[in-house]
Structures are given as structure tokens and as C-alpha cells.
């Protein structure tokens, strides 16, 4: 038996050496999604779109990996670091602790982390001012609501998602001060991102209590909120990617977070040798966040609303309006 196994191992080893020698040494960055998965129509999909754009523009290849739970974050990072990947892009704040540990262990490997801030010489941290984009969609909700009640549903209850809520509230209050808010979070662990059923139930309960517009910052769970809006014929606001098309007429707008631009830029820079470690913040001024208008929601956003939004945007960019932030939203302790 032992002999059989030994021989098998040697046989496989021999074939592997040949296969690996054949692999070319092209520049191949790696994208690691979070547990939401590549096609979540939201946060991770934006990263995927960015990687695809890199592929299309430069003709380069990339590899990606979808972990099934948060334990695999560190495993996946180490797996690629051990193989001296050209650039490892970790998508999501959940990766921050793992990136810090693995980047310390492999100082020669380049890492880019989205949403987390890791201060190491071989890590590029890209974070967004989600509160600024949320401010704008909060304004839209306040201008649109008929009941005077608006809702917020967050995925995992962490400071990063609290930041969406802060901006949303402040933006809504900027338009009118008599609004009432209801907020819910799907959960406290990473599984909260992947629970559209529970998110839909929370949304239905908010709608039943008189809310007519819900902003969902919950990754794939947000799809449950959109479904509830469709079922109950109410409105919702999408997040990260443009989700207006998911249920046309029921998605008022989407708070865009241009993870795609961040991922594409990191890959292209690394390929051209201009990749730099350090912290980069993408807010309204840098085009990192925005709200989405397309043919699916053009009828819902009036010209009058747009004028007010443009005014507010200019004030945020100039610094006249400073949008509140949640403490520790990008912390990587």
C-alpha cells in the first residue's frame, strides 16, 4: 500500500515539474474576492469588472479566487504569496488583518487591499469616502420619499458600513429635517453578506412600518432588499455596482463605489512598473463614489433633483460640506 502511494506521488511529481516548467512568466495579477463571491451584482462584481477591463485593455491575464469563508482569506493570500504572485489584490476590509500578517511575512510580494488601510512598504491601500456618495443618495431619498420615513439595511455591522449610514442620514437631513429613519443590520459575522432571505424580511418589515425607500449596503444580501421592493412595489437604493437594472423602476438609484477603477488602476500600474505602496483615498472629488443614473431610473430622478445634487456635490468637493464619518471604518487592527 505504501509502495503504491509512494509511486503515485513520485509519478505525479514528475508530471507536475514538466507542467510548471512550461508555464510562462507573464505578468499575472491575482484578485481575491470576499465571501460575497464574484457575481454578487455589487461590491465584488465591481472588482471583477475592473479586472476584466484590465484584461481587455492590456491583453494581460489575471487569476482570481472566491473564498467560501473568512478562514480562507489568509490561506488564499499565503498561497499566492508563496508563489511570488506579481500582485495580489485583496477585495474587502475583511482581508485587512490577513494582509498585514502575510505582507509582513512576504516583504517581496506586492499587495493591494481595497477598503482596508494597511501601513506597510509592500501594501497599497485603497479606501473610499463612501459617506460622500451615501450623502448624495440620502438626498435623493429625502427628495423622493412620500411617507417621510426612509430606511437603511446594512450587511455586517462594522464601522465601514456604519459609514454608509452616517453619510446617508446626513444627506437626507440636509434636504429636510423632519424625516424618521429605521435602520437594520443583517448580522455580525461575514455570513451577513450572503443572507438575502433575512435582508428581504428586514426590508419587508421596514416597508410595513411605513418606510418607502430603503438604502441597502449589504453586498449580495442587498439583492433580497431589491426583491422585497419589487414584491411590495416600493423603492430601494442599490450599492457599489450600478444595480438599477436588477429591478427597473424599483431601484431609485445606486450608490456607486468605483472598485472597478481601483482594481484596474492597481493592475495597470503594477504591469507598467508604476505601482506604489501607500494609502489612496477615493472620494467624490476623485471620482471614487457617485450615484447612478441610466435608462432604468431616468424617470425617477428629476432635473430639479439633479440641480440640487450638483450643488451639494460641488460643496462637498470644495470642502464647504464635510460629511461625517464613522470611526475606524478602514482600520486594520
Amino acid at each position: 500500500m505504501k509502495n503504491f502511494f509512494g509511486r503515485a506521488v513520485i509519478g505525479f511529481a514528475a508530471s507536475a515539474v514538466i507542467a510548471f516548467a512550461a508555464a510562462a512568466a507573464d505578468f499575472t495579477p491575482v484578485v481575491l474576492y470576499d465571501v460575497g463571491g464574484k457575481f454578487d451584482k455589487s461590491f465584488n462584481e465591481a472588482a471583477h469588472v475592473g479586472a476584466e477591463a484590465f484584461k481587455k485593455e492590456t491583453g494581460g491575464e489575471y487569476r482570481d479566487f472566491e473564498p467560501t469563508n473568512e478562514t480562507q482569506y489568509e490561506q488564499a493570500l499565503k498561497r499566492f504569496a508563496r508563489r511570488n504572485a506579481d500582485l495580489v489584490i485583496a477585495v474587502g476590509v475583511g482581508y485587512s488583518v490577513a494582509v498585514r500578517k502575510v505582507a509582513e511575512e512576504f516583504p517581496n510580494v506586492k499587495f493591494t487591499i481595497i477598503d482596508g488601510n494597511v501601513d506597510l512598504p509592500n501594501v497599497q491601500s485603497i479606501t473610499f469616502k463612501e459617506n460622500e456618495g451615501s450623502f448624495l443618495v440620502g438626498m435623493i431619498a429625502a427628495m423622493k420619499t412620500e411617507t417621510g420615513q426612509i430606511g437603511f439595511i446594512g450587511g455586517m455591522d462594522i464601522p465601514l458600513i456604519r459609514r454608509f449610514e452616517e453619510g446617508y442620514r446626513q444627506g437626507a437631513n440636509y434636504v429636510r429635517s423632519d424625516l424618521s429613519f429605521i435602520e437594520n443590520y443583517v448580522g455580525t459575522t461575514a455570513s451577513a453578506w450572503n443572507d438575502p432571505i433575512k435582508a428581504a424580511e428586514l426590508a419587508k418589515s421596514q416597508y410595513a412600518r411605513g418606510v418607502d425607500i430603503i438604502f441597502a449596503a449589504a453586498g449580495p444580501s442587498g439583492l433580497g432588499v431589491i426583491q422585497a421592493a419589487k414584491d411590495k412595489d416600493r423603492l430601494t437604493i442599490g450599492v457599489d455596482s450600478n444595480q438599477n437594472h436588477v429591478a427597473p423602476g424599483h431601484v431609485l438609484t445606486s450608490m456607486l463605489k468605483r472598485v472597478d477603477l481601483a482594481v484596474q488602476a492597481a493592475m495597470t500600474d503594477a504591469k507598467n512598473g508604476t505601482w506604489k505602496a501607500g494609502h489612496r483615498v477615493m472620494g467624490l472629488a476623485e471620482g471614487g463614489v457617485d450615484y447612478a443614473v441610466d435608462e432604468n431610473n431616468a424617470a425617477l430622478i428629476t432635473a430639479e433633483m439633479k440641480t440640487r445634487l450638483d450643488e451639494a456635490r460641488a460643496k462637498i468637493v470644495s470642502g464647504e460640506i464635510v460629511v461625517d464619518d464613522a470611526e475606524g471604518a478602514n482600520s486594520a487592527h
Binding site: V97, T188, T189, H333
Partner: peptide, 21 residues
């Protein structure tokens, strides 16, 4: 485990359900 890791055992300042190193 989830309760302890988002509560008493949570890494100070951390966002994920995990303990300190």
C-alpha cells in the same frame, strides 16, 4: 463562538469576528 468573537474576545479595533493575534 460568533457571540464571543464579536463581543468579549474581539480583536481591539478590529472589524471581523476574530480574536487578537
Amino acid at each position: 463562538l460568533a457571540y464571543l468573537l464579536v463581543g468579549p474576545l474581539k480583536r481591539p479595533g478590529g472589524q471581523m469576528p476574530e480574536s487578537a493575534d
